[in-house]
């Protein structure tokens, strides 16, 4: 009986603030995702300008035998790792590394997959001095010009321009317990109501759950989660493969046109 109740509780649809909480738990780890979905991953470091941001993992890998470029925002594993990655808040050179890898993918006609899990771009002194705004602006602009397919997958939280920088893509998918919003619910409540403690209330009105966003055509697909991670990864691998096949039937011009039209609709 107790088991039944437990099962029922688990299956109940979560409230937006519960989804926010869940999205911040380390349900899936960056390296685990890369190893689970792809083979032959070769990591590539650095933006060739100012440094290497460890919160953005990038490289080349094989998806069912086909080469793809993979870019993943990593929140880190233990406390030291998380601190050095600022809990998944990229620095400008992280976004510039992503740009470099996107353009490299373009050159070799490789599809691009990004995995996003970030509270937002890092609000720091060096970040500002090195042009955090410019880094994000150019990531978006360059994404708009890519002639290879790009799919963005949000696997945790995705806040503001810092997430959009890697999600100006042909399709955006979200894990079942992920969020995507203009700002964190705390920041939202603090700006609008001058009270960051009203974050639960903010989460409720922001429409940040996958279901809300699917309804608004901000995303194309919700990835069902399971404790059985290989099952989730198999599903993603298959779907990525299918979608890239379909997108690859388009000419580069059609692809770019379709991507721009996707955002023109908002």
């Amino acid at each position: 009986m107790a088991v039944n109740i437990g099962l029922k509780l688990f299956k109940r649809e979560l409230t937006p603030s519960e989804v926010v909480k869940k999205s911040r738990e380390d349900r899936f780890l960056a390296r685990e995702i890369i190893d689970g979905i792809f083979t032959d991953f070769v990591e590539l470091h650095g933006d060739r300008l100012s440094g290497d941001d460890s919160s953005v993992i990038g490289g080349i890998a094989a998806l069912n035998g086909t080469p793809v470029t993979v870019i993943v925002i990593d929140k880190g594993i233990d406390i030291h790792d998380k601190l050095s990655k600022r809990n998944g808040s990229p620095e400008p050179w992280g976004y510039r590394k992503a740009q470099r890898l996107m353009q490299q993918a373009n050159k070799f006609h490789r599809p691009i997959v990004t995995f996003i899990n970030t509270p937002g771009a890092f609000p720091g002194k060096t970040a500002e001095a090195q042009g955090q705004g410019e880094a994000i602006a150019q990531s978006i602009l360059k994404s708009m010009k890519l002639t290879v397919p790009m799919i963005a997958i949000i696997y945790g939280e995705a806040g503001s321009g810092g997430a959009l920088a890697l999600a100006a893509s042909d399709q955006v998918w979200m894990f079942q317990n992920a969020t995507y919003s203009i700002l964190s619910p705390e920041g939202f409540a603090s700006i609008l109501w001058k009270d960051s403690k009203r974050s639960d209330e903010a989460a409720a009105v922001m429409g940040l759950t996958p279901k809300d966003l699917l309804g608004k055509n901000v995303i194309e697909y919700i990835i069902p989660e399971s404790r059985n991670h290989p099952r989730v990864f198999n599903l993603i691998r298959k779907r990525l493969d299918d979608e890239f096949r379909t997108l690859n039937t388009l000419t580069p011009q059609e692809l770019v046109k379709q991507r721009r039209a996707r955002f023109r609709a908002f």
Binding site: L141, M144, K145, F188, F266
Partner: peptide
């Protein structure tokens, strides 16, 4: 910055305008 009251739609404007900038650049 973004208009909080419009939520995610405000965020999408950044990409929408960027797409138009890209075409103008090209």
């Amino acid at each position: 910055g973004a208009r909080m009251q419009e939520g995610i739609n405000s965020l999408m404007q950044m990409a929408k305008v960027s797409a138009a900038v890209a075409a103008h650049q090209e």
